[in-house]
């Protein structure tokens, strides 16, 4: 029994500039979660509430990069994980948050914090606790090497399951018609 335990793969997940929708979709693999936990053990993840990522076999990233913290977390995942997976449209191409990219950040911050109606004496938050936003939102493959992509907004539970089981069985992951979706 102990041997089997040791062979379990370690998996970490996180959501950067995403909506957690991909994580919700991940839960849509439903009862197959039971099969999954036979094979893997979760490290840092919203599912475990572990805050720091340790050495892992697989890291799953939801969301793109919209601020400094996203970048820090991503770099940490890349350092710790053997295989890094971009899960969902935002991680793959920036997704919805990247639709701000044609606007200069300065303009966005002014609009939100200075000139919107009802914001008397507004100021742009400058507490060092707050991560600074990036000039543009980027998909994660523009900052680290990404090994596997699961597109979709969100990818279906079936798509996520297919990629994970492909990986666990040592195959190159692929999604056929019906599972491969960008929306």
């Amino acid at each position: 029994m102990e041997v089997v335990e040791k062979k379990k793969l370690k998996v970490a997940t996180t959501s950067l500039a995403g909506c957690f929708g991909c994580h919700m979709s991940f839960l849509d693999i439903d009862e197959r979660l039971f099969d999954l936990v036979e094979l893997v053990e979760f490290d840092r993840s919203p599912l475990t509430d572990i805050k720091e990522v340790g050495k892992c076999d697989i890291g799953i990233i939801e969301g793109g990069l919209c601020n400094a913290e996203n970048v820090h977390v991503l770099l940490e995942f890349r350092r710790q994980c053997k295989v890094l997976i971009a899960m969902g449209a935002c991680a793959v191409n920036g997704g919805l948050p990247a639709q701000r990219n044609h606007l200069p950040l300065a303009e966005i911050l002014s609009e939100v914090y200075l000139s919107s109606p009802g914001l008397g004496n507004g100021m742009i938050p400058n507490d060092p606790e707050l991560p600074l936003p990036l000039n543009q939102v980027h998909p994660i493959h523009e900052v680290v090497k990404v090994d596997v992509f699961i597109p979709g907004c969100p990818p279906s539970g079936d798509a996520i399951w297919k990629v994970l089981t492909d990986l666990l069985s040592g195959q190159g992951p692929s999604l056929g018609h019906g599972l491969l979706h960008y929306d």
């Binding site: 990247a98 044609h102 998909p139 999604l175 018609h177």
Partner: peptide, 21 residues
């Protein structure tokens, strides 16, 4: 999109231009 699906495109691979249009 359909052509990309058919060709099995899993990611855009390149760095995005994010043009202003």
């Amino acid at each position: 999109q359909a052509t990309a699906y058919d060709l099995g495109m899993m990611s855009p691979h390149f760095d995005h231009f994010f043009p202003d249009r």
